[in-house]
C-alpha cells in the first residue's frame, strides 16, 4: 500500500485551517460565507496565474481570513502586524532549541 500523503504540507497550513474551522464551530464564521469569500480570493489570485493548490491555496486562505477578521473587528490589521512583529522579535531573541514565547 502506498504511504498516505500528509494532510497538511506545512504546519501553518494546519494552523490556519484549524483556526478557521474553530471559528466556524464556535458560531463566529458561517461556512457558506467563508466559502464565498474564499472562492472570490482564489478567483482573484487565479486571474494572474494558475494556483497549484498547495502553498498558493493556503496563502489565499490566510489572506481571506485576515480580511474577514479585519472586517468583523476580531483582529485589527494594525494589531496583527504588531503582534507578528513581536513574534519575529521573540524568535530572533530566543536561543535555538528553546521554546519561543512572546514577552508580556
Amino acid at each position: 500500500m502506498t504511504r498516505p500523503e500528509p494532510a497538511f504540507a506545512e504546519p501553518w497550513h494546519a494552523q490556519v485551517f484549524a483556526l478557521t474551522v474553530h471559528l466556524n464551530e464556535t458560531g463566529r464564521l458561517p461556512w457558506t460565507d467563508w466559502a464565498d469569500r474564499f472562492g472570490a480570493t482564489l478567483a482573484r489570485h487565479g486571474l494572474a496565474r494558475d494556483l497549484d493548490g498547495g502553498d498558493d491555496y493556503f496563502t489565499a486562505w490566510l489572506e481571506t481570513l485576515e480580511a474577514v477578521l479585519a472586517e468583523t473587528g476580531a483582529a485589527d490589521p494594525k494589531e496583527a502586524m504588531q503582534v507578528k512583529q513581536a513574534w519575529e522579535t521573540a524568535y530572533l531573541a530566543t536561543p535555538h532549541g528553546q521554546p519561543v514565547h512572546l514577552k508580556d
Partner: peptide
C-alpha cells in the same frame, strides 16, 4: 515564514 508568523499573530490576538 512570513505567512506562518501572520497565522501566529491571528491566533495570539484571538
Amino acid at each position: 515564514s512570513d505567512p506562518a508568523l501572520r497565522v501566529k499573530a491571528l491566533e495570539t490576538i484571538l
